[in-house]
Simulated scan of single mutants.
Amino acid sequence: MRAARTLRFRGAAVAAPLLVALSAAVPAAADSVKLPAVRSALGADESCVAASGEQAGGLPWALAALGHARSLTLSQGAGVTVAVVDTGVSTTAAGLSGRVTALGGAGEDCVGHGTFAAGLIAAAGAADGGPAGLAPQAEILAVRGTDERGNTSAARVAQGIREAADAGASVIYVGVALAEGKAELTNAVGYASREDALVVAPLAPDTLPKDRATGDLVAAEPWYWPAAAPGVLAVTDYGPDGGRPDNAPVVSGADLAAPGDSVVGLGPRGKGHFIGSGASLAAAHTAGAAALVRARHPEMSAAEVSRQLTEAAYPAAPPRLDPYAALTAVLAENAGAVPRPARAVVPAAVSEEPRRRALVVAAVGAGVLLLVAALAVVVPRGRARGWRPAG
């Protein structure tokens, strides 16, 4: 666990906020327990998710824990495109209308997970509160990372990451975690990194599959992809009480933790809300925070944005996402994060010859002055005595 530290901010030195206490003090909306749960996949015989008839009022606990209102005074993600590689993003979803560009058929979302994640990233929110995204002015690029039912593969996700990078996304959110596909997904992430796109992905699946023979949950893998690939910002989740559900996959190696349990968001149809839990939703919040930083600091590279988010995070194990600190912290290690003073230039050594000449001239001048002074005394006295020697 990192030691507590004070971060240097522009204008003052302040301690990072205690996100654990804040999240525990702000419960989820009282009516959120009535909301239908968002899912990551549907069965072959299931129809597309229906519109929710329930709405959650008030400020969601996740936004309060992340200091959403303070962050918006500094950045709202304007000019940044966040790709959502998931089940698709509905182009008509409440809070996202007019800001979703879809590749292929990704503008329709039968499952609802991609739209839910996109809402956590960039939904405008409603005047009476309710779910909103961290970067409400960011643009969303919908990229198909699964089939219409939510089934996926490493090849499909890798293709989605490449398509997002080619389309100019500066932040690429991936909504799945796969136990296989190391080579394909690592190569795809490397391609995105060369295009200066930051890939954000869940550390592990939201839920583990069950063994068909025993019905028991399958043990978690040591790592999942693309989260384990170099250059990816791997994110795990926590809930309103600061902890994680008992049945959540336990995997080490997260770069950040963010609100992901009992999270309220929007659906692909209607104005109703859904509720969900898992690392994929924590990754969506982190992608929104990355959009805020990229909008405020366009000179930063994808790698520098990743460092800004992790180094400015609240010190814990793993560090907890703090968007406001990431927007204001000045990290000396981040080249380009703030203007640097001009490099000091030491002048070349001055030649000693002019100095020596000056000393010689001064010595000669002093000797001449002494001689003149002596003559001024001796000559008059000699004349007065007729140049006769003394007594």
Rank of each mutant, 00 (worst) to 15 (best):
A302S: 13
A312H: 00
R212C: 15
Y224D: 02
H273G: 00
A283L: 01
L178V: 06
V189H: 00
A358T: 12
A254W: 04
V171P: 09
D246G: 13
R244A: 02
L371M: 08
E195Y: 14
Q76R: 15
A167K: 08
Y173S: 01
T286L: 06
V20K: 13
A4F: 13
T152F: 00
E333M: 03
A30Q: 07
N247D: 15
H273L: 00
A332F: 11
A102M: 12
S90M: 13
K34R: 12
A220L: 13
P205A: 01
A21P: 03
A28S: 00
V360C: 06
D322H: 04
L63I: 05
V364R: 12
H113W: 11
A37M: 14
V199L: 10
H297W: 09
G260Y: 09
P249Y: 05
N187P: 07
R212V: 15
A65G: 11
S32L: 01
F9P: 05
A325W: 02
V174S: 09
A142D: 13
G391Y: 07
A201P: 08
L141M: 03
L292H: 06
A179N: 03
G88K: 11
P318T: 05
W225M: 05
A363P: 00
S52Q: 12
L7Y: 02
I161F: 02
P36G: 02
G365K: 01
R356Y: 13
T101R: 12
A289G: 00
